[in-house]
Amino acid sequence: MANWMRTNRIAAVLLVVVRFYLGWKWIEAGWHKIVDGFSAAGFLNKAIETPVLATGTENAMYPNFVAFLKHFALPNVELINVLIPWGEFLVGLGLILGGLTVTAAFFGMMMNFMFLLAGTVSSNPWLILFGIVVLLAGNNAGKFGLDYYLLPWIKRAYRHIVKRKHPTDPAAPVNRQGVAG
């Protein structure tokens, strides 16, 4: 199944539908926050005050995450107020356009998991499920999108950079570690 998702053209077409659905959900969430204004302060305070509890106890299930919210996210709420709406919007844009598709799906899932760790279920499990489908498909998920053009260009640029750092010319001087350059 995984091989089919990663290589088949029909799978690539079906993934366009998944990408559009997932991307639309992200763009919609981000756009409303950008246009209408957004503050994460209330959400962060509530997540800190009433963390997800371990079953049958009064202990926080994710104490490290609560500490992160309390000591980093809340003191930097202005940064969070920019990162969340624009992150949601850009994840959606990447998925709809098929540009850096796997990266967009990964960061979308990271946001979903952050919201789940804070105690908000909402549509997060559903979006994570679709994100997993996109991740499993790999580059085939963006085959009918910008990735068709972007990924070969990125690959060539990367090879060029690596070649400049590590030339394979036998006449190149070799340092003590035996590396050319």
Rank of each mutant, 00 (worst) to 15 (best):
A118F: 05
E88G: 01
G92P: 08
I10G: 10
A11W: 04
G37C: 08
S39C: 03
L53E: 05
G138W: 13
R176C: 02
A2R: 15
A73Y: 11
P173T: 13
F72H: 12
I96N: 06
F68K: 02
L136M: 15
L151A: 07
I80T: 11
G142F: 10
R164L: 15
N59S: 11
H32P: 00
E49H: 10
L79G: 06
H71P: 10
N175A: 09
A40C: 01
A104I: 04
R19N: 10
L90P: 01
N139Y: 14
L136V: 14
G94N: 08
A40Q: 01
P125F: 03
D147V: 07
L44T: 09
A171L: 13
P152T: 13
V52C: 04
A157V: 12
W26C: 03
I161P: 00
V18I: 14
P63V: 07
K70A: 06
I132M: 15
N112S: 14
I96C: 15
S123E: 10
G42H: 05
P125I: 02
P51Q: 03
N81R: 12
L136A: 11
M110H: 01
I80S: 01
F43M: 12
L93V: 13
L136N: 07
V133M: 15
T55R: 08
N81E: 04
E49L: 08
F113S: 09
R159K: 13
R176Q: 13
K155L: 10
G178P: 11
L15Y: 03
A137P: 09
A47P: 11
A40D: 00
L22T: 01
E88I: 02
G138F: 12
L90T: 04
